[in-house]
Design a protein around this nucleic acid. Structure first.
Lengths: 195, 195
DNA sequence: ACCTGAACACCGTTCAAGT
DNA sequence: ACCTGAACACCGTTCAAGT
């Protein structure tokens, strides 16, 4: 709520940096196989460090999740900037939306954390969520200005749709992944047919 | 996976039935305030019984969730049957969809349990999910036969859309509930304008 | 600055003893 | 048939002692 969330930083000392990296690698693996509520003790032992070391670098689970997803979400924002000003703003928006859904559902439980972080300043991922919100809003505005997307759709609504699609994807066990179709239905619902 | 999930039954002996009911009441209250992962010990103590008694009646958390939501979801199915054969099949479908979203998001975590139960037979809520699937499919088919809904939409996809809307609603903290708008966008996306 | 691991707390789950 | 609560297991979190 007060924008004071702790953001993990890569240490300067060599041993600290080695452990930091090992914990992040173990965390990504554990999150992907077990979900965002994977055991922190397992992660520490997989990384070959004591549990206190994990807590020293990542005082909360949220700070670990933030650090584990930071690069991927930064890429998503960077890609949006590359797409902005594209020849076809609708193509740009839909391509970005597909990518966003994939990133949001990197592991089970992530999209819920991101959805909470979007409107809670006291959360480590809030800053990144704000950046994504801006990126998405820019692409949306361009597509609306081109007359390709219904003009009454707000950025908040866009993110609800993206999050819903990502959540459906995260629920899907292996085969039955309804999210491409989900997103397709959403897209056909919000786009304006070329006359 | 094997359809052998334990379904809680209301005991015949008076003291057992009293405790069973008290546990269910406490569970509903706890689920609504804390979510589906509310502490079972808290629920037991709120109900005025020992933890062993809770486990006797509800051997798994899933069986308690199933029992706590059984009546509400039965009503949803019953309502679908009343709506079937309505004068306007599209109105019937949309009314039912709104009701379904409300029921699916009775408390935080429920829609995830239901989404899992839909395709996992080894789960207490699977039977009820099947019934809801049938109900929704009937209303969908009627609306499609009337030419009101795009004919390529499958019941599975309908439930993905409903679940997505319910999940958005469950994430929303108090005020910002995007689910009515979410559902509205979905509905406008899947319906066929009357010519 | 950073690491370790024992210590504490909390909660889920089981089960022997009881009515 | 049903209830109780102690006992065990597991895991998150902290912190004093160490390098």
């Amino acid at each position: 709520m007060d924008g004071k969330a702790y953001i993990a930083q890569r240490p300067k000392r060599a041993d600290g940096r080695r452990n930091y990296d090992a914990i992040l690698a173990a965390a990504r693996k554990a999150f992907e196989s077990t979900g965002a509520d994977a055991s922190l003790e397992d992660i520490a032992s997989q990384a070959g460090v004591a549990i206190g070391t994990l807590y020293r670098h990542f005082p909360t689970r949220a700070s670990l999740v933030e650090a584990a997803t930071r690069d991927g979400l930064e890429n998503l924002v960077a890609h949006a900037e590359r797409l902005s000003g594209a020849a076809d703003p609708l193509d740009a928006l839909t391509a970005w939306m597909r990518e966003a859904v994939a990133h949001f559902s990197t592991f089970r439980g992530l999209v819920g954390i991101l959805a909470q972080s979007m409107y809670d300043e006291g959360t480590p991922s809030h800053t990144m969520c704000n950046a994504m919100h801006r990126s998405g809003a820019d692409l949306l505005r361009a597509a609306q200005a081109a007359g390709s997307v219904r003009p009454d759709l707000t950025p908040d609504e866009l993110f609800d749709l993206l999050s819903g699609a990502a959540w459906v994807r995260e629920q899907a066990a292996g085969d039955r992944d309804g999210s491409p179709r989900f997103l397709q239905l959403v897209l056909e619902g919000i786009t304006i047919p070329r006359a």
